[in-house]
Simulated assay, not measured.
Amino acid sequence: MAVAEESKELLQAQLELWHHAFGYVKSMTLAVALDLGIADAIYRRGGRATLSQILADAALSPCKLHGLRRLMRALTVAGTFTVATSSEDSGGEAVYELTPASRLLVSDDVDGGDGEGSAASLSPVLRLVLNPFRVSLLGMGIGAWFRREDQPGVAPFAVAHGRNMWEMAARKPTFNALVNDAMAADSRFLMRIVLRECAEVFHGIGSLIDVAGGLGGTATSIAKAFPELRCSVLDLPHVVASAPSGGNVPRMFSCPPHWISPL
């Protein structure tokens, strides 16, 4: 499917802003990798290790496997590590490998199986540079979260703040407004492109439910473009309190713990 140049330019501009806005994620994940000794764990295995092996060598609970997979995904996208295709000798698991950059993360005293440690390490320098990400709320104590065994289902944000993002929004109107405004702006931006470039995906659909649809911006855009399409939105009660009414979006009715509003 050919995409209009205007849409390409808009999406590229959005991508550039995301790169700037989320640039701290690279620093934060690198700080966590240092805290957990991921490069050391892979180095001990000869420079190649599966996720399960990294988990064991870093002395992490098996309940953190999913979190470690997400962390390694971010680190491989950043180029800190590489990931190879799974093979029989790895038990079907993906194999993570050191890069020239991550070899510099290996501690000087770590034995790589040949009786010798890393020839050069920049870990002490990086620990100094990245220390703000390790000790501030920005880092959300992710390194400490990985070492927790009592609450595998609790996200780092909730560990740091005592409640998850949505619970905080329910208790703090200013934060709730910040979240809702952000989601609405994102919907306005993307739906203009989606409806221009991918409108055919809505053809032949009689009804649509937008789960966690916020203030209903996405569903409203679709309903305007396709009046014959019956749309519904589901979200939490505290979101409903800020939902607009009128136009083709009638007042939204709360139905704890979710709500449904016909458009």
Results as ranks from 00 to 15, higher is better:
I205R: 15
A31L: 06
A199P: 06
V240P: 11
R171L: 15
A199N: 11
R48I: 02
L51C: 12
A58S: 14
A223P: 10
H19Y: 08
S107W: 03
G217A: 08
F157R: 13
R44D: 05
G153N: 10
I205P: 15
V159I: 09
T85Y: 13
R196T: 04
P156L: 01
Q53Y: 03
A39H: 04
S121V: 04
T76H: 03
P124I: 07
P132H: 10
A225F: 05
G217Q: 10
P124M: 14
R134P: 09
L11Y: 14
L126P: 15
T80Q: 06
G162V: 01
H258N: 10
A41K: 04
K26Q: 11
D150M: 03
L68G: 11
A169K: 02
T76I: 09
R147I: 00
R148K: 04
G217M: 12
L51T: 13
G162Y: 02
R127N: 08
A119H: 10
R251W: 15
A223N: 14
S121Q: 05
F189H: 13
L15M: 14
K224M: 02
G113R: 13
H19G: 03
F81C: 06
M1A: 09
K64R: 13
E97N: 11
E197V: 01
L36E: 11
N131R: 13
F81D: 09
S52P: 05
L195Y: 02
S123R: 13
G115A: 06
A59M: 07
E228L: 12
V233W: 05
S52V: 08
A2P: 14
S245G: 15
H66A: 15
S123A: 15
M183L: 05
E88V: 10
L71I: 05
K172T: 07
A33N: 02
T82V: 06
A225L: 05
S187I: 04
L75A: 01
S86W: 10
Q53G: 14
H203Q: 12
P152I: 00
A219F: 04
H238R: 07
E197N: 00
G141Q: 00
M1Q: 06
L229A: 08
M1S: 08
A241S: 10
A4H: 15
S86C: 12
G67C: 05
K64W: 06
D57I: 00
A185T: 03
N164Y: 00
S7C: 13
M168L: 08
Y24A: 03
V211T: 07
I209E: 07
A94T: 02
I38W: 05
I205N: 14
N248Q: 08
G141E: 01
L126D: 06
